[in-house]
Amino acid sequence: MTENIAPYIALSGVRRAYRIGGEMISIFSGLDLTIPQGDFVAVMGPSGSGKSTLLNMLAGIDSPDSGTLRIGTSRLDQMGEAARAAWRAHNMGIVFQFYNLLPMLSVAENVELPLLLKPLSRKERRIRVDKVLDLVGLAGRAKQYPALMSGGQQQRIGIARAIVSDPGLLLCDEPTGDLDRKSADEVLEMLRFLNRHLQKTIVMVTHDPQAALYARRTLHLDKGDFVEEKRAA
């Protein structure tokens, strides 16, 4: 899968295998992928197709055995773990399937977490948190605790946390997998808004064909390789 314009994400000849029970199981054996800046890509595929491994590598949580993995100007495949963590903190937001909010922190404190990694004053952090909470429609809920909120609202907190440090890339792992249809559509609308109006590049892993319709294109992964690509009308 290649693009003619300069890619923002580029995987080339990526190989990744895991040892399971003494046997090497190959997930990718030469995966190529390019995603231009500002794209919104949905990745679909059956269980075991490699979606999670792909997402983990893009997030810098996992690294390829061989091949190149570049995001922006950074070669993630050449970075150590600490460097990848630092890179993640400044360039990427992650939206989790089960929100992964810290229940003992308030909404604002959860959203503020990525900003603690930046040299910002308390006031600067508060301004940014207020701004993104307003963006996701949770202004005025800053001091509440996530456990008291609906799944859709919790996922919006998760999105606010992912974009609060203004990263160029959003990785979404089944962001609507735990939501009802109405809440799922609200979250997906929000992701589309972020893509279209704030130019965030989004890679979303999903099992939900409805969710994939919100993306600009959908890639189907099977047995470690892309087998189909659909573009939104």
Binding site: A59, I61, A82, R88, A89, I94, P114
Partner: peptide, 9 residues
């Protein structure tokens, strides 16, 4: 989660 967000060891 916080380590995935970029927090150190």
């Amino acid at each position: 989660t916080v380590r995935a967000l970029g927090f150190g060891r």
